[in-house]
Design a protein around this nucleic acid. Structure first.
Length: 568
RNA sequence: CGGGGUGUAGCUCAGCCAGGUAGAGUGCUUCGUUCGGGACGAAGAGGUCCCCGGUUCAAAUCCGGGCACCCCGACCA
């Protein structure tokens, strides 16, 4: 049973102008339409109208989770710090983790995510392979002490996430659980009218295998993705690989020292010697968990710090400051992996596979010609640590990569056994042998999805809600409400809508017609019904579609049917 | 955490340079008129000029310190 909501009594204020703080379209609309009110940086109050929208987004996600066979549960947001020490993530999360103590000085955290808690729960429940596979999910507030919340609901310090976790007996069945979630995500974003592109993503230092993000390509996004228009390859910049320019072919020649006065960058070195940047080797220095690391990569490429961090399983990784560089005996601008002592050397294959590269001599204003890996220097670790950039070759075809920005709306991730090991999620197989469960995790930021829905569904007049997410099915504008025939028609209309299960927002305020129409456009319900002497004189109610702007006079007894016909 | 910007009525902003009664539009209240795309008139309510300190006879305004918010960057399972 539904009851229409009277705007004269509804807790809602719209704004004629957007507050100055808002830049993104979604942020402006959220404030102008009165869906949210900022309380502090990264923290928002949802008004009754905004909360209806949030609940609809949540319900859409819930339907698809249930359809995919996941089971809803609820885990606490407040958790003992000990749990996070057990998994090792109190350190990994660092400053982003909200910490607090209780009255007995015991340490707690406000959970930024729930792998630990769900694993602890699974550990207590899962015993046999008969208990698997299982996928559990919840809607829960997450707390992250973000250094810079931004963009309205785009990056928050407290937000609602739908987080799901799958537990499988092995990697093969995990593939199925993962695919079920992937498919559910595709349906969710399609139904929410937000175009989301699945891209390969970084799986982080915690281990794990496949990981994909659903990215809404948008100029205001925070994430960079590389896509190949030719074959459709798409990957987060943190993860992307590429086809580098081939090295210049040459037979190894003897090392030769040259004076290079004033040369301290790859560009100036290449220009000075008249060679290409890909014929040089670049040195970059990092402080990795307190230890200096020398990174060598071909001169035309940049280091991907995420790849490097994962490779070294580093918690803290930052470029070395000038003082640390000097203390390590390195000469910035002319550093060399040749004769380097007491320091780990990590190299990208681009630097080890090319012959006769130009590199630093470890003294100011001098470089060495014809450096060859294996002969003149040797890296401790050789692996892909190169950053893919726009214009690079696609790894899968002959195309060229393009850089686009986008918002991460969802993330699906094959975690593996790391949490199962840390928190002891084990089961007995058919032969009586004990194994760790293989996990996957799957997240969607509900608030951010709501923001993306607004980014993707608005025009110059305001919001254009997708039918599935609109806070109300219809927006009824009442004109001349003091006239008996209008009051009579309105009351019949409300009864009709109620009987049809349609939720209505009824603008019965004492406002001018223009003001009501403007608000109806701003609030963006899919259908606007106008009850007025004029429309009644023409034989019914005016029905106007928000999407097309087309309107029609419809007899009262056909209104519900018309609206339904337009619905999915 | 680095760089930039902004803080004056619910909202958008002016006033600050050059110290002296705190303003406009919009919104809100009341009355009347109006009634199909943010109507008109009249009367009203509404401010810790972000905070603390200093200079001065006098500070929204000048000086010092802090805080908050926004944007860019760093960071972001």
């Amino acid at each position: 049973m539904t009851v229409s909501t009277r705007m004269s009594r509804f807790f809602l204020k719209t704004l004629r102008e957007a507050p100055a703080e808002a830049e993104l379209a979604s942020h402006q609309l959220l404030l102008r339409a009165g869906l949210v009110m900022p309380l502090a940086a990264g923290l928002y109050c949802f008004t009754p109208l905004g909360w209806r929208a949030m609940r609809n987004v949540e319900e859409l996600v819930r339907e698809e989770m249930n359809r995919a066979g996941a089971q809803e549960l609820r885990l606490p947001a407040l958790q003992p710090l000990e749990l996070w020490d057990t998994s090792g993530r109190s350190e990994i999360f660092g400053g982003a983790l909200y910490r607090l103590t209780d009255r007995r000085d015991r340490n707690f955290v406000l959970a930024p995510t729930h792998e630990e808690a769900v694993s602890a729960l699974a550990a207590s429940q899962v015993q046999s392979y008969r208990d698997l596979p299982v996928t559990l999910y919840q809607f829960q507030q997450k707390f992250r002490d973000e250094p810079r919340p931004r963009g309205g609901l785009i990056r928050l310090r407290e937000f609602c996430m739908k987080d799901a976790y799958s537990f499988d007996p092995d990697w093969e069945t995990l593939d199925e659980s993962y695919q079920a979630m992937f498919d559910a995500y595709a349906r969710i974003f399609a139904r929410a009218d937000v175009p989301a592109l699945p891209v390969e993503a970084d799986s982080g230092a915690i281990g794990g295998k496949d990981s994909q993000e659903f990215i809404y390509l948008n100029d205001n996004g925070e994430d960079e993705v590389l896509i190949c228009p030719a074959c459709g390859y798409a990957a987060n910049a943190e993860k992307a690989t590429f086809r580098a320019e081939p090295p210049v072919d040459a037979e190894p020649a003897p090392v030769e020292r040259v004076d290079t006065p004033g040369v301290a960058t790859i560009a100036s070195l290449a220009a000075f010697l008249g060679v290409e940047e890909r014929q040089t080797v670049k040195a970059v220095f990092y402080s990795v968990d307190g230890e200096p690391v020398f990174v060598a990569i071909r001169g035309d490429l940049e280091v991907n710090e995420t790849k490097l961090r994962n490779l070294l399983k580093a918690v803290e990784l930052e470029p070395m400051d000038d003082g640390a560089v000097a203390r390590a005996g390195l000469v910035a601008g002319s550093a060399s992996p040749v004769g380097l002592d007491g320091m780990r050397v990590v190299a990208d294959p681009s630097a080890t596979e090319a012959a006769n590269l130009v590199g630093g001599a470890n003294e100011r204003d001098a470089h060495l010609l014809n450096l060859n890996h294996g002969r003149d220097w040797t890296a401790d670790i050789v692996d892909d640590i190169a950053l893919a950039e726009g214009g690079h070759g696609c790894p899968n075809c002959e195309g060229r990569l393009e850089v686009r920005s986008g918002m991460e709306l969802g993330h699906v991730f094959k975690l593996g056994t790391s949490y199962a090991e840390a928190l002891d999620v084990r089961y007995l197989d058919g032969e009586g042998e004990r194994h760790h469960a293989v996990m996957g995790c799957y997240g969607i930021g509900i608030d951010r999805l709501l923001a993306a829905v607004l980014e993707a569904n608005h025009d110059e007049d305001g919001i254009v809600w997708p039918r599935t997410l609109a806070p109300f099915d219809v927006h009824v504008v009442v004109l001349g409400g003091d006239k008996p025939e209008v009051a009579q028609a309105l009351s019949e209309l409300e009864a009709t809508l109620e009987a049809a299960g349609l939720e209505a927002l009824v603008d019965d305020r004492d406002e001018s017609p223009g003001a009501k129409f403007k608000d109806a456009d701003l609030l963006g319900m899919p259908v606007r019904l106008t009850v007025s002497p004029r429309a009644l004189g023409r034989g019914g109610i005016e029905l106007r579609e928000r999407t097309s702007g087309e309107s029609d006079i419809v007899p009262l007894d056909e209104v519900a049917g018309r609206i339904r016909a337009g619905a999915v």
